[in-house]
Nucleic acid binder design. Structure first.
Length: 523
RNA sequence: GCGCCUGUAGCUCAACAGGAUAGAGCAACGGAUUUCUAAUCCGUAGGUUGGGUGUUCGAUUCACCCCAGGCGCGCCA
């Protein structure tokens, strides 16, 4: 990649220094720049401009045609056009993953109700992250965890039972911390018809019912999971007991008020946590820690766990638990995907699952196309609270950037069709030296940045960087299109430009695929 | 009360390990099409980056203190 080559160039001259390469703002001359001179100047208290002068004289490389010094000490590099064209002809892929096995767990909605919008955001985010990691050379698997044990499942079964009573015209009362949503009524009806009443069977069937619903929903949303892991599986394989034993032997547990605590404060948690309740059942924590151990023992070298904002309290204790098992906290990255505030008719809609007032992912997808939905979700950093304006998303055909990107692709496809109708053969062996217009150079150089953007997005765990890149690429293409005609009288030039826009289209499409968005051939 | 996230143009958001005159889209106003898709392009206007102090050659970015909003702080998950 271009950026790496420039970095290597400077590293050769200054092996001790950390080299930072940035892009040059559009109004300045140059393509890449470094602040190296200012960094050195800061240490030695010499004028940065003088050091910049010194550095720029030491640089002698065929890839750079000019270096320019800007006050207070930036050194900008102008890429050699011949070099850009050579690079452009071959596709160079970012491979920072080197086959590292990564487990990305996300969504993991409890099988007690529908998938809501925050889960939907996490789904789009996690899925894009997995695609991104695999593109960048990692061996990443998407994993979904099914909490099919524990108290919430008991509450679910009880809530369904009460709904069955209701349907039978009997008295009923749903437990206060049970599930009050009306979505349980059709399920209760189903059970009545099938004459299912036994609690264990209700539990099992209800879990399967929601699980299947989630699987279908996620598939519709183009989110793929490789692994579906049940909590019961983790328990049955003895992981929970094993972790328990380790913690006991290491003296990390203590009893208090009849409950068993884990000393997570020994590993920087804010307080110690209950792992076994007074009535002898596990809280979520121990199975969760055991589950993470189970991931590691399935030979994953790095774990990414994506959680919703309501699970913030778990972060510290989960890291603490892994440290308690003598794993470095570097093996796990917990990403909190922040909440989605849904706006309709200018007002925010509040969502509560227990109360049964929430908008599901399904509701959302009934209103807006998947492409728009995914792009919208992925346009923000995961740490940002997301404002989702339904009215805007619905009538956005003109103001939604996803169409802007898709339109650029469709436009290119149209040109290619036009060229084919004219009988112009598409070949890859073109003479790029014919491309010397400013807009052509900008386009080529921007496309070369794609792999660098991938690298940045992966390192930051932030697919949103891709969305901005794609909007930028679409813009640059539209500019080019406005100024220059692709299919013209000069056949050689036409071929060269066709090659250029074909690469543009490929890049757009690859990027959109990473986000799970489509690129229609026509619009 | 403690912890986490957030505060940038009228609105939604960028600014890539502290960098250059803080950028886009939408909304507003004015323009561009005899030729490959006008879902496009060009231009105008819009800012004390919530407020303050500090560190620095340089702060939207880092530290501290306020102000405002959201979320989390359970023997629920």
């Amino acid at each position: 990649m271009v950026r790496d080559e420039i970095k290597a160039l400077l590293k050769q001259i200054y092996p001790e220094e950390i080299i930072i390469i940035d892009y040059v703002p559009p109004d300045k001359k140059g393509d890449y720049s470094t602040n190296l001179a200012m960094r050195i100047a800061g240490k030695k208290s010499i004028s940065p401009l003088r050091i910049a002068e010194e550095i720029s004289q030491k640089i002698n490389s065929p890839i750079i045609s000019e270096t320019i010094i800007y006050p207070p000490g930036f050194i900008n590099f102008v890429l050699n056009h011949t070099y850009v064209k050579e690079k452009f002809k071959t596709i160079e892929k970012c491979n920072i993953g080197k086959g590292l096995r990564v487990n990305v767990e996300f969504v993991s909605v409890n099988p007690t109700g529908p998938i809501n919008i925050v889960n939907g955001r996490a789904a789009a985010f996690g899925d894009a992250l997995v695609r991104l990691l695999n593109y960048a050379g990692y061996d990443a698997d998407a994993e979904y965890y099914i909490n099919d044990c524990g108290r919430q499942i008991d509450l679910l079964a009880e809530s369904i039972k009460q709904r069955m009573n209701q349907l039978l015209g009997k008295e009923f009362s749903i437990p206060e911390d049970g599930y009050h949503g009306e979505y349980l009524i059709p399920l209760a009806k189903k059970f009545l018809e099938a004459k299912i009443t036994e609690a264990e069977v209700v539990k099992e069937q209800a879990v399967n019912y929601f699980l299947q619903q989630h699987q279908e929903m996620l598939e519709n949303f183009r989110v793929k999971f490789k692994n579906w892991i049940r909590e019961s599986e983790v328990r049955n394989k003895g992981y929970v007991d094993r972790v328990m034993k380790i913690f006991r032997e290491k003296g990390l547990t203590f009893e208090q008020d009849g409950a068993l605590y884990l000393k997570t404060t020994a590993f920087n948690d804010t307080r110690d946590r209950v792992i076994i309740t007074g009535d002898g059942r596990y809280t979520y924590l121990l199975p969760d820690i055991a589950y993470h151990l189970y991931k590691i023992e399935r030979n994953y070298q790095f774990l990414i766990t994506i959680l919703g904002p309501d699970h913030l309290g778990q972060v510290g204790s989960l890291y603490a638990g892994l440290k308690g098992l003598d794993y470095s906290e570097n093996i796990l990255k917990i990403i909190i995907v922040q909440e989605v505030k849904l706006k309709k008719d200018g007002r925010y809609i509040s969502m509560s699952k227990r109360a049964g007032t929430f908008i599901t992912l399904e509701d959302l997808l009934n209103e807006i196309p998947i492409d728009v939905c995914r792009f919208f979700f992925l346009m923000r950093s995961s740490s940002q609270h997301l404002d989702f304006d339904l009215d805007l998303a619905k009538n956005v055909s003109e103001e939604n950037p996803v169409y802007y990107v898709q339109y650029a692709y469709a436009r290119i496809m149209s040109i290619i069709r036009f060229a084919q109708e004219k009988g112009i053969s598409m070949i890859d062996d073109v003479d790029l030296n014919l491309l010397n217009e400013k807009e052509e150079m900008i386009l080529m150089k921007y496309i070369l940045r794609f792999e660098e953007t991938i690298e940045d997005a992966v390192k930051n765990f932030e697919p949103f960087m891709i969305t901005y890149y794609l909007i930028g690429l679409a813009r640059i293409f539209h500019h080019f299109y406005q100024k220059h005609r692709v299919v013209g009288d000069n056949e050689e030039l036409t071929r060269a430009r066709l090659f250029l826009i074909k690469r543009t289209a490929q890049t757009l499409k690859t990027g959109m695929e990473l986000l799970g968005c489509s690129c229609p051939e026509k619009m």
